[in-house]
């Protein structure tokens, strides 16, 4: 019984971090209506930025957020502004520009290989940070402290993004653009600036996810691929474009990965995750939190 509780809590903690890694994907899709294939690479860049910020300054990785968030926001903003915007402009008449998907795939390859060139294939892990290897022991249960921090970071980030989109003027403008970019333009919203901002916010959340991961995860150039597939499944599960859907989708995956291995081998959990993914696509293609038709 205590084992089940321990596994459930671990599943929720790890799952919320999965949700955080997928948050940027869902934000970018919600606004730009394109799947960003480079999202795993953005997460990888976020991990490297967080890793070097924490290593070089010796700060607690969470203090490094002061550096990581602005850098990643600027990185995403510029990436969208210089690489993706021109394609949007060229394909003005198309509602879901396929070319952008191809461009993001190119960005993925370039970023991964650039990091391979610069940092080499080595696996790096944050040494001597206050969170590394810390465990909380409560009545025979062991819980990872860095994952607990990750859970808190994920919830605060999701809440903050949600609040920003719902309550601020800029957030409303972003939502208006995501609903109907032509109408929004007619209302005087600069649609390309909104895209830049959405991409920047999405990339910044990938940076926060990087900070949450580095106290207990390795950094290497192809690390994004591990979270990529999971990210797509989470986002489809929760509903493309939905913030809380992504968090819930992440927690569902986390629970499957954590609880199921106690009844079968860990290899099976992957099969279960993909089976669930297919089932959702068959039964409720818009996802758990998704809206059936978007306009």
């Amino acid at each position: 019984m205590i084992y089940l509780l321990e596994d459930t809590i671990n599943g929720i903690l790890m799952g919320s971090i999965y949700g955080l890694t997928a948050l940027g994907l869902t934000i970018i899709f919600g606004v730009l209506k394109v799947i960003n294939f480079a999202h795993g690479s953005l997460l990888m860049v976020g991990m490297y930025v967080a890793f070097w910020a924490a290593t070089l300054s010796g700060m607690n990785p969470y203090v490094a957020l002061i550096v990581v968030v602005p850098i990643m926001y600027a990185f995403g903003y510029l990436l969208q502004n210089t690489l993706i915007k021109p394609i949007f402009k060229a394909e003005k008449q198309v509602r879901e520009p396929i070319t952008v998907i191809i461009v993001t795939t190119g960005v993925w390859y370039i970023l991964d290989n650039l990091c391979l060139l610069i940092f080499g294939p080595q696996y790096r892990a944050l040494q001597n940070n206050p969170l590394r290897g810390k465990m909380l022991e409560i009545g025979g249960m062991m819980l990872s402290v860095p994952k607990l921090w990750g859970f808190v970071a994920a919830m605060i980030t999701a809440g903050a993004v949600y609040w920003f989109f719902q309550k601020t003027r800029m957030g409303r403008a972003i939502r208006a653009t995501s609903l109907d970019r032509e109408a929004a333009s007619l209302m005087g919203i600069n649609q390309y600036k909104v895209y830049n901002m959405a991409f920047g916010i999405g990339t910044a959340t990938a940076g926060i996810a990087g900070v949450a991961l580095i106290p207990f995860f390795n950094v290497y150039p192809s690390v994004g691929v591990l979270f990529d597939m999971k990210g797509y499944i989470i986002v489809v599960l929760g509903g493309l474009g939905s913030i809380w859907g992504a968090m819930l989708g992440g927690i569902i995956i986390g629970l499957i990965e954590s609880v199921c291995p106690q009844f079968m081998t860990a290899t099976w959990t992957e099969a279960i995750v993909y089976a669930l993914f297919l089932a959702v696509l068959f039964i409720k293609p818009s996802g758990l939190f998704g809206v059936k038709y978007d306009w």
């Binding site: 596994d7 671990n10 790890m14 999965y18 990872s144 995860f217 691929v225 591990l226 979270f227 999971k230 986390g254 990965e257 954590s258 609880v259 199921c260 291995p261 106690q262 081998t265 860990a266 290899t267 959990t269 992957e270």
Partner: peptide, 13 residues
């Protein structure tokens, strides 16, 4: 226990 090499969380194992 065979596990997938791509696993991101080894706490369950």
């Amino acid at each position: 226990e065979p596990y997938p090499s791509t696993a991101t969380d080894f706490s369950p194992v």
